[in-house]
Design a protein around this nucleic acid. Structure first.
Length: 502
RNA sequence: GCAGCCGUAGCUCAGUUGGUUAGAGCACCAGAUUGUGGAUCUGGGGGUCCCCCGUUCAAGCCGGGGCGGCUGUACCA
């Protein structure tokens, strides 16, 4: 078979493999998050990767095929199925399906993979992990406040204290502001969407760009033109005034108290009744947040937060990391949002006759992990676990004896393996080195006749090699190597391990 | 989707006005060392020069089209 006929080995774009170091780091991070969620009284639940597409609400208006952003396929009865694209819609399905059996309010958490068929980029994958917590069946903003505080606590427990901000806004206020700008009515729905998207870009593009996007439009660096919302100057003023109510400039409204921000909004914008309703909700939340001690910089009311554009109905939140680090090339990396959420009072109600209020928060696990890795957090960069002890095969006729040594080590709860390849001793040493083996066990005919085994401490040996220049010397010295009786194998290996991993 | 930049070995890249059999470093494998991971030296494997069409005596290099990657932007429910 010529090489041209061979399949090219490559992961599909937007999908990533994960090695042992990443897996261990992820596991440590997830354990910390899980512990916090449990502490807050949330219970675990898991739903399937695949849902009926209509349960996700992802059919296009023509009702014939699913939205392009969702991985979908047809069952043998022609029903459309989709890979879940978040954990919220499936939870709504789960709660509706088991409504009678669940305690209300129902407080649950879950971690899992979600899939989006979108253009991937740095830090953006088509398969990624989210870790959600939701309270279903509680209409009170106390539930929203609690979720925000738990998000803050979670990041605190991950060692990010003082390096993040949970930003809070309310979709009702956004609607109220747009109504105040004369953007109410069904015929202006498209325009409202453009306005929300423009506000959402404040962080990334700045105030000037947002103004352009609210007006005629904006030309970006590549020369590409984005059509704007076409608002008149008065309308633009109303929106910009509102967005700037945090600290008059941009989003991270540090130094401005939440109450002051709310007063600002009220003073600057003649909100509609719906907007005032949202404002009152945020005031209630601010009181709870203040009382619990989260008021001072950890949870901040920020008028520029928009979040996902469809199912949110009330308070929305976004967790943003505020520090900057440089990547391997020395370029500054902005993490942006590592999580977000909000109130979605209509989602469960799609399955039931009565409305079911709900609110939740979602952590982007993959993105948070890379942030923690770039800032060299101890949670993800903990000391690497030692590899297995490798028993070398010096004599292929004695494999049964080597296998017995492996079993003896395993029975003593020591990670161990027999070298299963076919190469010579040098290659076996290289193998053990690459496996991070703390030591190797060597028994050739000489040792066997004496009833002994050689133990070579690879960590100590590597250290000793620094001082040695010639290979002859290196070989002759056999650094960090000693001989024990076969019966003393386990004790000797334990001693080596204790030397390095006590 | 739109725009800009870029496609040569597993990785990073060199390759003259178009001219023999396309190179380097790193990585990998082996030997020097019949039983010792480092270092050194020697050797080796590995290429559809992204693909197709065209121009030419001759294309990695020139032209057209396609595909892929990166960046920005849009979309992100």
């Amino acid at each position: 078979m010529s090489k041209a006929d061979k399949v090219k080995a490559r992961a599909p774009r937007g999908f990533a493999d994960r090695g042992p170091a990443d897996l261990a780091a992820t596991e440590r991070m997830l354990a910390s998050i899980r512990k916090t969620y449990e502490l807050y009284g949330f219970e675990a639940v898991e739903t399937s990767f695949v849902e009926y597409t209509d349960a996700l609400g992802k059919f296009l208006p023509d009702q014939e095929r699913p939205n392009a952003g969702v991985f979908s396929f047809q069952d043998d009865d022609e029903q459309w199925l989709s890979l879940r694209y978040d954990l919220t819609a499936p939870l709504a399905r789960y709660v509706a399906e088991h409504f009678d059996a669940l305690p209300k309010p129902y407080r649950s958490y879950r971690a899992g993979w979600v899939f989006r068929n979108e253009k991937p980029g740095p830090g953006r994958f088509r398969q990624f992990m989210q870790f959600d917590a939701d309270t279903v069946g509680a209409a009170s903003v106390a539930a929203d406040a609690e979720i925000c505080m738990m998000a803050a606590t979670t990041l605190d427990h991950l060692g990010l204290e003082g390096q993040y901000v949970i930003k809070v806004n309310n979709r009702k206020i956004l609607d109220g502001v747009m109504e105040a700008a004369g953007l109410d009515g069904d015929d202006k729905a498209g325009q409202r969407l453009i306005v929300l998207r423009a506000i959402d870009k404040l962080d990334r593009l700045g105030l000037k760009a947002v103004e352009q996007l609210l007006g005629d439009g904006r030309k970006d660096d590549s020369g590409d033109f984005t059509k704007g919302a076409g608002l008149n100057p008065g309308q633009i003023d109303t929106i910009i005034n509102f967005v700037g109510a945090g600290d008059g400039e941009i989003s991270s409204a540090r130094g401005v108290s939440n109450v002051a921000t709310l007063d600002n909004i009220e003073a600057r914008v003649a909100l509609s009744p719906k907007g005032l309703d949202g404002l009152r909700e945020l005031r209630d939340m601010a009181v709870l947040i203040e009382a619990a001690g989260y008021g001072n910089g950890r949870i901040v009311i920020d008028p520029s937060v928009v979040r996902g554009l469809e199912y949110y109905t009330g308070p929305v939140y976004e967790a943003e990391l505020t520090f900057q680090v440089a990547d391997e090339d020395g370029k500054a990396v902005r993490f942006g949002s590592v999580g977000g959420g909000g109130r979605y009072d209509g989602l469960v109600g799609r399955f039931r006759s009565e409305p079911v209020p709900a609110t939740g928060f979602s952590i982007g696990v993959s993105r948070l992990l890379s942030a923690l890795q770039l800032m060299k957090s101890p949670i993800v960069s903990g000391k690497e676990a030692p590899g297995p002890v490798v028993v070398l095969v010096m004599d292929k006729n004695e494999i049964a004896a080597y296998q017995r040594m492996v079993m003896t080590l395993r029975e003593a709860q020591i990670r161990a393996e027999l070298y299963l390849g076919s190469s010579g001793m040098k290659a076996q040493m290289k193998y053990a080195d690459k496996r991070n083996a703390p030591c190797v066990i060597i028994q050739g005919s000489n040792e066997r006749e004496r009833g002994e085994v050689e133990i070579k401490d690879l960590i100590e040996g590597a250290r000793a090699s620094d001082a040695i220049v010639s290979n002859a010397e290196w070989k002759a010295a056999r650094p960090a190597q000693f001989s024990v009786s076969e019966a003393g194998l386990v004790d000797a290996v334990r001693e080596v391990l204790a030397r390095h991993f006590a």
